[in-house]
Design a protein around this nucleic acid. Structure first.
Lengths: 165, 165
DNA sequence: CTTGGAATGTCAACAAAGCTGACTTAATAT
DNA sequence: ATATTAAGTCAGCTTTGTTGACATTCCAAG
């Protein structure tokens, strides 16, 4: 990909352009969460449950500590969410084999079913947006998002991608 | 799920690619709000105050109703935020001239100062991300975000842009 | 083997920011 | 005149985050 900002065309860096980017981010995030939110509202769950379910699905057997770092909340906050998911039989918590202090989290069949339902809804919107914008735009989208992450989270973002292949 | 059409490269629409986009969006949004959040944490304000301040700055004299539609919250929720901002002398609420039921909202000098402080922090990160990714990527970023918005909000997103030039 | 520290979990209390529902006031529109 | 709209308020509830204190379990270092 040709990076052709030779110093002349920096129009995309004006305060006005940046402001529009900020607003686009705000409005788009609302769309991003709208579909799963609608599904979750019909049950006793919220966005926090969705996030936990998503990342457990993504990295089956992950530990509570790892999930904590990814989600960026306190253990008390995560624990409340996790407890209801375990009680409801969507998530299973198994004591670690090598380190028995750790709890390894996996989705049950019911959990995986909910994950799929939420994920399908969210992906459908993403797919529509990607299709409308085209592959080149998608590449740029991903580049900017990555550059916007905090370094620590960017590291984790890549770690998930790699552990997944 | 195998989408193989002669010539068309639709690799960017695989479930795995969409999943990565979803996670990128999640992690990036955290970075997006991190800097203003840090500033707000030092005062008695939160993200809701930031949003109100931002859009009042963006459309000075806007009505409560308009703000409500943009932010997508209930009037009770917005009112709580607005009340503290008015009490603290950051926002001014003036009765409408043509329609006296309406309240027109503007930032005071103190409000504008805080807005600038928050905005500068957020724009700095945006600028860094834009610069790192380049103009072409930024164009794609904007395209995908726009395609992701709910139609109603996309309309409002454009309305703000136009009223601003 | 004992002990210190790490990982996990729990209890309690609280705050921010959203929600619904009911209601008032004032002003505009029909 | 009456109905509707804009704004604001009160009360109560939910979700999701926060601290702080404390117990349990287990690994590892002395």
């Amino acid at each position: 990909m040709a990076e052709m900002h030779g110093g002349e065309n920096l129009l995309f860096l004006t305060d006005e352009q940046l402001r529009q980017g900020i607003e686009a981010m705000f409005f788009a995030y609302r769309g991003f969460t709208a579909d799963p939110d609608r599904i979750l509202a019909t049950m006793a769950y919220g966005r926090a449950h969705h996030r936990a379910i998503h990342f457990i699905a993504r990295s089956p057997g992950t530990t509570v500590n790892n999930l904590l770092a990814i989600l960026g909340v306190t253990k008390q906050s995560l624990n409340r969410v996790l407890r209801t998911l375990i009680e409801d039989g969507l998530v299973e918590s198994r004591v670690g084999t090598t380190d028995k202090r750790e709890r390894h989290l996996t989705l049950t069949d019911a959990g995986a079913a909910l994950e799929r339902k939420l994920s399908d809804a969210q992906r459908a919107r993403m797919r529509a947006a990607y299709r409308a914008a085209g592959p080149q735009a998608v590449a740029g989208f991903r580049q900017v998002l990555e550059a916007m992450m905090e370094p620590e989270l960017r590291r984790r973002y890549h770690a998930i991608r790699e552990s997944d292949t």
